[in-house]
Design a binder for these strands. Sequence first.
DNA 1: CTATGGACCTGAATGC
DNA 2: TGCATTCAGGTCCATA
Length: 248
Amino acid sequence: MAARFGLPLRWPLGIAPDALIGRTVQGVGRRGKYLLMSLDEGVLLLHLGMSGRLVFGRELASAGRHDHMDLETTQGTLRLHDPRRFGAVVWTSGLDVPPASTLLHRLGVEPLSDAFEPRAFHAALRLRRAAIKQVLLAGDVVVGVGNIYASEALFEAGIRPTVRADRLSLARVERLHGAIRSVLERAVELGGSTLRDFANPFGETGHFQLDAAVYGRCGQACLQCGTPIRMVRQGQRSTYFCPACQRS
DNA sequence: CTATGGACCTGAATGC
DNA sequence: TGCATTCAGGTCCATA
């Protein structure tokens, strides 16, 4: 394969783009929100940030203002489109050495794996005094729970987003564990969330937001009890919750 | 070590 | 209409 790069992304690629000429893609994986593309020599880490989108095709239109990478392969071209450029494409010689190890080493457990287990989750939360919503977002206990899904999972579990993580009983953490799993599984089924112009490589938008119980519904009636949904700010991010269904 | 606020960057929506 | 302000799905980094 070969690659063309435009404006800088979050970090530099780490090698000369020409070093990718002739490499072969051997497989694709994921860790947290990083995509891992293993090559016959090294691994490409890709991250979509907040506004990134991948497009794949054999005859793509000429690159536009926000198209920052074209990865040309014998099967077609993988294009990264990312208006905000919070995304990244980084080459690493292996996952256990920098830069990959630096980026991945603090990531929490995968929520849909067997390693995500209520008692361990509870034990990890007991070490944290920050608000449960912020601990979920931090991603160092469990990964994959972004701003939308954190609000949704806490609603499903009946937990106030501002409660300290270390104050949650095992029983409540068990509910949260189940809620995170069910929210993420449903989101995957629905093809993810689309607030604005997000789309998969085939141009299809996700439908999770049509399904959101609290996210983006400030002032609207709670679907469970009719109480108006409230919005608060936690660490510069919006959090939505029902003040009646999530009393503590 | 944990917790917090700022930083990165652009575009769309909102307010005066 | 025009211009300024606010907000957006992430996460790293410096500071306390």
